[in-house]
Design a protein around this nucleic acid. Structure first.
Lengths: 218, 218
DNA sequence: TACTAAATTTAGACATGACGAAAAATAAAT
DNA sequence: ATTTATTTTTCGTCATGTCTAAATTTAGTA
């Protein structure tokens, strides 16, 4: 399994291409910052190897083994992110790039030991679930903060955008995973929201709310 | 800098190709388990980039920047080995392969943090010195056990052969770095030695003694 | 339904890194 | 000094993964 192949599988997974759900060549190309023609080439190759199902002009989806492989890479990526934050004091906006490299290290023993060292974490620093060794993980019930109604209360459980810029913004404004957020008001004009967090009211744009996952409190 | 280039630089370094000392194409090919013709190709490329000096039919040696690069890779390799042993409980015969992969991870911050976490170790699990960030390292005074005379005493400080087989043999026979070894006798017939270690006499072949570095005690 | 626009694939090309066979240079030996 | 053997290089080829330009298919619209 080459690095390129692994990256394609991972991308298809992130675009939702599991359980016969088709992902378009264009979508993959855009996500990977490559050209559609390159994606077509690779789609053929992965289909040949039985890692994806591919029908010309229709798109690709992960096969059973393709999904298994993708999950193992995602598992490694997320565990390394936890390691970088917990053990090496990286901040959550610095870990992605490095984890992109570390996820390709081939050693089952290594990732198992990292997993143990960290106490078998269930979520990465951005709140994304970490698949278990056999590919099981629980997609947490969550919704975007932007989908909540005024008056409702939620706990911040994850971020959609993991760009350094967005994460630094959250740090600067003292918004962290685990914080409780109450929607005070939503502005009709621009959908910006007033939220109550850490006992204080603050205003955030729709775009911010659209990239924060919360778990609704009853 | 590609992975292949890094591996060539590392190999040239290990074959002693620094400070204008020429290393032959054949030697590199053998060490890397590749063909001399491939080495020639890469030698040209590295010379083009100013990482080695290369004269046709003469051999290659590392340039100043080539040496610097090689040292940084060796540093990473050895620090990762320490990490695997100290933090993740790998045994010293399991670390090489994984470190061969980890040494290519590109993140200065990562390796600096690993270095800190480990307390800035000076030697790797096989006794090889770890270059500092600016490429300085002290080659310890050492000699092969096979070069010692009967009656002399030394402390085991490193291994020449780092193969899993050899290291497992040492484990099995309770020979570890730091142990004091006295040469009791050398057999004329086959150069096998009787040594006193941990208060007990044992016999080891010349080949074993030829792969153990000791520091002579006065 | 026919036409256009968008998405996708094909075909030819390139860079990297490796290989084998044959040619060239160096080293060794008579 | 000339032949022989060894080392090293050159040359053509191949696999991987990418790209551009052109051709094809699909989808959308009049």
């Amino acid at each position: 399994m080459t690095r390129a192949e692994e990256n394609y599988l991972k991308t298809i997974f992130h675009l939702g291409g599991s359980s016969s759900n088709l992902v378009s060549t264009n979508a993959i190309a855009e996500q990977m910052e490559t050209k559609p023609s390159s994606v077509t080439d690779m789609a053929k190759k992965l289909a040949e190897k039985g890692l994806v199902e591919y029908t010309k002009y229709q798109g690709v989806s992960l096969s059973k083994t393709g999904l298994k492989t993708a999950l193992s890479i995602v598992r490694k990526h997320r565990l390394w992110e936890v390691f970088l934050v917990e053990t090496l004091d990286f901040s959550w906006d610095e870990v992605h790039e490095v984890a992109e490299q570390l996820e390709h290290i081939k050693s089952e023993k290594l990732i198992d030991r990292i997993d143990s060292l960290l106490g078998h974490p269930k979520f990465d620093p951005h709140g994304d679930p970490i698949p278990s060794k056999d590919g099981v993980f629980f997609e947490r019930e969550q919704q975007l903060l932007s989908e909540m109604k005024p008056g409702s209360i939620g706990v911040c459980v994850g971020v959609k955008d993991t760009s350094s810029n967005f994460l630094k913004f959250l740090d600067k404004n003292k918004i962290a995973l685990g914080d409780t957020i109450e929607i005070v008001e939503i502005e009709d004009f621009d959908q910006s929201l007033t939220i109550k967090i850490n006992g204080q009211n603050m205003s955030i744009s729709h775009q911010i709310a659209n990239n924060l996952y919360v778990k609704k409190q009853e």
